[in-house]
Each structure stands twice: as C-alpha cells, then as structure tokens.
Amino acid sequence: MQKVRGVVARGKGQPVSIETILVPDPGPGEAVVKVQACGVCHTDLHYREGGINDDFPFLLGHEAAGIVEAVGAGVTEVAPGDFVVLNWRAVCGDCRACRRGEPWYCFATHNAAQKMTLEDGTELTPALGIGAFAEKTLVHAGQCTKVDPSARPAAVGLLGCGVMAGIGAAINTGNVRRGQSVAVIGCGGVGTAAVAGARLAGAARIIAVDLDDRKLGGAVRMGATHTVNSSEQDPVQAIQELTDGFGADVVIDAVGRPETWKQAFYARDLAGTVVLVGVPTPDMTVPELPLIDVFGRGGSLKSSWYGDCLPSRDFPVLVDLYQQGRLDLDFFVTEEIDLDGVEAAFEKMHHGEVLRSVVIL
C-alpha cells in the first residue's frame, strides 16, 4: 500500500480537491503505474458534473503515460520499468467480439479488481477505470501499452483518449482511403485529431468545419486543405461546393449534436460514410429524416467508440509516427500544469481556450 496525492471529485458540480490516495499493491493481473503526464479531458469534467454516473467520489484523469512500477501475479505483457500509455479498453480475449476476431469491440473490458481509497477507507471510482490525476495509479495490466520510451509523455499520453478517438474515427471507423474527400465538423481536440487521421490516411481533400477561426487555423496546421466557418455559411452547401457538388466521401461529426449529425448526413456523397465520434448527451435524439433519404443515399451511418482502436496495435504505431515527425502530437498540448491546476483547466476548457491542458507529475 502506498500513499499518493490525487485529484478527487467528491460531489456533483463541486470543485475538485487534492486528496491523499491509498494505492494497493498490485494483485493478480494488475499493475501500479507511476504517472508522468495526464491530459485534462472533457470526460473528466463530465464525471465531475455527474454526467457519466453518480458513483462519487471519483479519482479523475485518464489520458496518461507513465512508468510501470510493479505488477501482480500472472502479468507477462508489461514489466517494471516499461514506459506505457494507459487505455480504458483492456480487452478480455474471450467475449463474442474477441472470439470473432474483432477485439476493438470487446464487450467485457477489464479494470483493476482492487479499489483505491481515501485515507478513511472510502472507495474511489477511477475515471474510465484509470484515475491518473495522481502520482501513481492502479490499473489492469491490459490497460498498459508499451511504447517507445524516448517519446514525450505529455504528448503521447493524449493517445489514451481524445486524440486516439479522432484519429481512429478517420482511419479505423471511417476507413478513409487515399484520394478520398473528408469533412470534419467540429475542430476541438477530437475533431482536429480526425483531420490528422485523414491526412495520415492520404485523403486528397480535407474540409474542416467550425464556428471558431482559431480552431480552423489549428485544423489547417494538422492537415486540412479547406475550411468552412459555419457561422458565416451553410456547412452542407459549402462542403458540397468544395467536392464538385457531390459531398464528401466521409463526414465525421466531432460535435455530437442532432444538428451537426444531420449536417453530416446531408454533406456526404451518395454511398458515403457518416461517422459520429462527438459524444451526445442522454437527452439528445436522432433528428427526423425522411426514410427515403436514408435508403436512397446509401452508404453507412457509423458511431466510433474510442476510435475503434486496439491499443496494442494502434498506440505503438502512432507513437512511432510522432517520433518520425509525421504526427504532431505536441500540437495538442496547449499548456502544462500541476495537479493543483486541474480546476482552472476545466474552466479554460469550458471556454474553448485550450485543446489540452496536461498535468505533469
């Protein structure tokens, strides 16, 4: 058992606090990781606001990289001293998705069996089964993916959630191919990562759509060939005009609202693909569409959960591309902060001032 500092959300809407966390020694299949960096993600804010569930108190943080400190019995995939990026999709290998060769859809992912606690014994719910706004955290060993140890932790840790979700939405879910046209609606962290993914896949035309010219400028830096400010022009019409009147082959909705999903539906070419990667709230519903349009336009309407990634396959490749200078993960790191700066980072995120604040430990 170890005592460390960590960021805890004690109640719905309450400011987070720095608490002493008790981290158990790893049991069978578990690992203790010394956290080096962890990004501040919208999902952490959703936890604090009670938007995920009400299993307070939460130990926040999940976009993390660090060093494996200790492992429990039966762990063979990682060892003490390994540099890892943490993930919240430790596949089981035995569910119906895994057995049919699609582990990225695993329906029985693993987390650590033991609980981290406060000093008084109160059990903590780790965000996405990770809880990495802490000096050390306890996870299932399958949540640790070994990557190039010379990579910058603040940058590659972001693959643990938002950046992977965006890149995967383009490459894995959207199956973007060389020469295709892609439109991305919403150019925050996830949307800009989707632009980067489309570029990596070899898309010929990448159209970034947002209300904010600053975000559109960032999308251009990451590979967008065209931009549309949707406060000034209709995005569906603009995307069609930029694709010879047809619409884009793949349209990625990185906002997750009925309005933007409907725009994505009509902004795609016949037999094109719509990918929803922005996370809607529980009260949102699919907008009413004429069923003949759904039938007549053909193609695919897909949702992308964590970019349909397989961490053991995707993380090392993307880290290597970063190390080669072909994927600018540093772009997503707007600022580096300490644990005491998480609450302020939530406020900056709420106002759209940052792509990612990253806690450095």
Rank of each mutant, 00 (worst) to 15 (best):
E336Y: 01
N172P: 14
P235N: 01
N87L: 03
G325N: 05
G74V: 02
R152E: 15
L339V: 09
L318S: 11
V294Y: 10
V228Y: 05
Q240V: 10
E135C: 01
F83W: 13
G168T: 02
L327H: 05
A97I: 01
G223R: 02
L355Q: 11
I207E: 12
P24D: 12
T109L: 05
K348N: 09
Q2K: 10
G121F: 10
F133W: 11
G186V: 08
T281I: 10
W261T: 13
V40R: 02
T173H: 10
F265V: 06
A165I: 00
R89L: 08
I206H: 11
G50L: 00
T122K: 01
P57S: 03
R96K: 14
P280N: 08
R152H: 11
L301D: 10
A134Q: 05
T273P: 06
A64R: 00
R89K: 14
D210M: 08
A90I: 07
D94V: 15
E288G: 13
I239A: 01
R326C: 01
G74E: 11
G186E: 09
D148C: 11
G72Y: 13
C38L: 06
T273N: 04
L339T: 02
F331P: 12
A155G: 00
A113I: 13
T225Y: 14
K136L: 05
A70H: 04
L159A: 03
P153S: 05
I67E: 13
P311Y: 05
T192C: 13
C161K: 05
D249G: 05
A248Q: 09
G307K: 07
F58H: 02
R10Q: 12
E30C: 04
Q180M: 07
A194L: 02
D55G: 12
A97D: 14
A141W: 01
C41I: 06
G218I: 02
K348R: 01
K146E: 04
D120Y: 10
R178K: 12
H42C: 03
V317K: 11
P126R: 04
G61A: 09
I292P: 07
L327C: 08
G29K: 05
Q237W: 00
S181D: 10
S303D: 13
G74P: 06
T334I: 05
I67M: 15
V8P: 08
D340M: 11
G11K: 13
R313V: 07
S17G: 06
V342F: 12
G93Y: 14
E343Y: 03
E119H: 08
C144F: 02
V4N: 10
R356V: 06
A113G: 05
G247A: 03
R221P: 00
V228K: 02
L128T: 00
A248Y: 11
T137L: 00
C106H: 07
R178V: 11
G247R: 00
R199Q: 15
C92P: 07
L289I: 15
G50Q: 04
K34V: 13
D269L: 03
Y306G: 09
R268I: 03
V319Q: 02
T192G: 06
S17M: 01
P287Y: 10
W104H: 15
T243K: 04
A112Y: 11
L86A: 04
C38K: 01
A97P: 03
